[in-house]
Write a protein that binds this DNA or RNA. Structure first.
Length: 528
DNA sequence: GTAGGGTTAG
């Protein structure tokens, strides 16, 4: 330990090493484990060779394994990050790619698959570290020896806003090696740009492509919808030479997310009737929120019937969970109970339980929600932050204040869930509804500054209005207006509080401020 | 080889 501290000069690196010691055990290396982990950790944390980083260390590198062996291992476990990282480490520490006498095509396959597996896993940026290592440490694998697969996978790995700087450089390299007209490579680039929100660049790539596959069109649609360019997406959709269920699902999702549920359902029918395309599970998962938004139990039942007919409800837990949520949002709690009873505990996952708890919560059934929570724990599942949020919401809507506060403590202390703004919001709402306004104000003022928002103060303002508390109401109004000034409802709430105590002039002054500050409030309406 | 995915305060 002292030696390590001396070498690395920091305890953090030591912790990092310890993690790697655990990770290395899977590869069962022939060379000493601690030593390999030591080298590995240093190598992966710097992505340079050990001799560059620590020239003073005289450590014999491990003998390189045959690339075919590593490739088979990777293909056998494509979605296991530990194995992937060990292979990454082995390539670096053994200097595998420094041996040009190895079979280069197998090496390239190995390289491509490392990039591909990283790009699909939880840490796609490690694909870029790996690529960077091969380019900067004098391996024979510099970019001219890469193929179309390498560039397509590298583009996928950099398809998020934090990696755009890399993606742009990659685009230049693609030009340099002459893959600017290759469908897979360009589709990869298109995905990189569109998922990062660089829609102008994405459109440039898209319109410069001499040939496009159906996937190319779908990738472009995905980007447009993700960045809320639904009208543009629809015009691209209308230009498509042919459309798959994925294209339809994307556009339906666009309308669902834009709060246009009727349009989403119209498109859903059109897909089946005009194009004769059968919906998949994902299509159903996309229209469920649209149905919930309309709140019509008849449509909900027919969607359920369709899911049963296609066998989706019995084969896909996501469909069952989404149905629990859908029935709850349509106010049919009897169906939620039926699902809970009929679904065997072995099939229920955390989302099933959480959806039911959240369903009870939104229908004001606090006791049933807590009972479901207990049953979930008996079934051996550990609640997560969403489960706790649903439980807190249930306590808030069911008036179970003490229980709610205990759950908050349990969440933080026992389950080590770090509360986010939604959890704090629930606690504030819970205390506020119960008229415990001082405590609610105290909680709100103690919410960490970086997460505090206007919604949380607005919730409290609503409670002050219900309980006619002018003093706290005025303080809270000040807080809300410091954060947001354009929300007309805030002025109305405070104005109502003032009317309640006969301060009509002050109330009018607040209402006038709505016009002065160009704040506005949509009049409420009811669908009942 | 490349595309769409269930629960989340007020």
């Amino acid at each position: 330990m002292i030696l390590m501290k001396k070498l690395f000069g920091s305890i953090t690196v030591y912790v990092h090493l310890e993690t790697w010691l655990g990770k290395m055990s899977l590869l069962k290396p022939k060379y000493p484990l601690s030593l390999s982990a030591f080298v590995t950790a240093a190598a992966i944390s710097t992505t340079t060779t050990i001799s560059h980083r620590f020239p003073c260390l005289e450590i014999a590198p491990p003998k390189p394994k045959h690339p075919q062996h590593l490739l088979s291992l990777l293909l056998k476990h494509p979605s296991q990050p530990k194995i992937l990282q060990q292979i990454h480490c082995h390539i670096i520490t053994s200097g595998l790619f420094h041996y040009p006498f190895h079979d280069t095509s197998t090496c390239l396959l190995l390289f491509n698959n490392v990039i591909r597996c990283y790009s699909r896993g939880p840490s796609p940026h490690l694909a870029l570290h790996f690529f960077s290592y091969t380019q900067h440490s004098h391996t024979f694998f510099t970019y001219p020896s890469l193929d179309t697969f390498s560039f397509a996978f590298l583009s996928n790995a950099s398809a998020n806003p934090t990696c755009t700087h890399f993606g742009i450089q990659l685009h230049a390299l693609i030009f340099k090696v002459g893959f600017q007209f290759h469908v897979y490579v360009q589709t990869g680039l298109l995905q990189m740009y569109s998922s990062s929100g660089l829609l102008v660049e994405a459109a440039q790539v898209f319109y410069q492509m001499p040939r496009r596959s159906l996937v190319t069109w779908n990738v472009f649609l995905t980007g447009l919808i993700k960045w809320e360019e639904v009208e543009l997406a629809l015009s691209v959709f209308n230009q498509m030479p042919s459309r798959s269920v994925v294209s339809w699902t994307l556009v339906i999702d666009g309308y669902t997310r834009r709060n246009q549920p009727t349009k989403a359902l119209t498109l859903f029918r059109e897909m089946i009737e005009v194009d004769g395309i059968e919906p998949t599970q994902v299509t159903l998962l996309t229209i469920f929120p649209a149905i919930a938004n309309i709140g019509c139990i008849k449509i909900c039942q027919s969607a359920h019937g369709y899911a049963e007919k296609r066998g989706f409800n019995s084969s896909d837990i996501r469909i069952t969970n989404a149905l629990i949520d859908l029935y709850a949002k349509c106010g049919c709690i009897a169906s939620v109970n039926r699902f809970l009873q009929e679904l065997p505990d072995q099939r229920k996952n955390l989302v099933s339980w959480t959806s039911a708890i959240s369903g009870f919560a939104m229908n004001g059934m606090g006791r049933e929600a807590l009972e479901t929570f207990e049953n979930m724990e008996k079934a051996g599942l550990r609640p997560n932050r969403v489960t706790f949020l649903s439980v807190l919401s249930a306590c808030s809507h069911g008036g179970l204040v003490e229980e709610g506060l205990n759950f908050f403590v349990k969440m933080v202390k026992d389950c080590e869930v770090v509360p986010d703004i939604k959890h704090y919001g629930c606690v504030i709402d819970m205390l506020g509804r119960a008229g415990r306004l001082e405590e609610a104000e105290k909680v709100a003022s103690e919410v960490p500054h970086e997460v505090a928002n206007a919604v949380m103060w607005r919730t409290l303002l609503g409670a002050c209005s219900v309980h006619n508390n002018v003093e706290i109401g005025q303080r809270v109004t000040r807080k809300v207006l410091e954060m947001e000034r354009g929300h007309g409802g805030d002025y109305v709430l405070m104005s109502n509080i003032l009317v309640g105590v006969g301060r009509f002039k002050d109330a009018q002054r607040l209402r006038d401020m709505i016009d002065e500050r160009i704040a506005f409030k949509l009049p409420g309406y009811s669908i009942v």
